[in-house]
């Protein structure tokens, strides 16, 4: 759980958006959306893991159920 997680997410987001527009220019629209979808899924798993850790620390700190 280090700060590079944030930069990893930022990197994936930038790469996916660049790839999307490049491939869209190349005329392969459906592949562009495929790449965007995989990027979103990967980032989503990373973010949910981070959110789970965040909410568990909050739960411990405030003794929430």
């Amino acid at each position: 759980m280090d700060v590079d997680l944030i930069f990893k997410i930022a990197g994936i987001a930038i790469i996916v958006s660049v790839l999307h527009s490049v491939i869209k220019q190349a005329g392969k629209e459906e592949y562009a959306w495929l790449i965007t979808l995989t990027g979103v899924v990967v980032v989503l798993t990373m973010v949910t893991r981070l959110i789970w850790d965040f909410f568990s620390t909050i739960r411990v700190m405030f003794q929430l159920p």
Partner: peptide, 10 residues
């Protein structure tokens, strides 16, 4: 601007 959903997640 490019990918709003990625922005929200970030």
């Amino acid at each position: 601007r490019e990918r709003p959903e990625m922005g929200v997640m970030l």
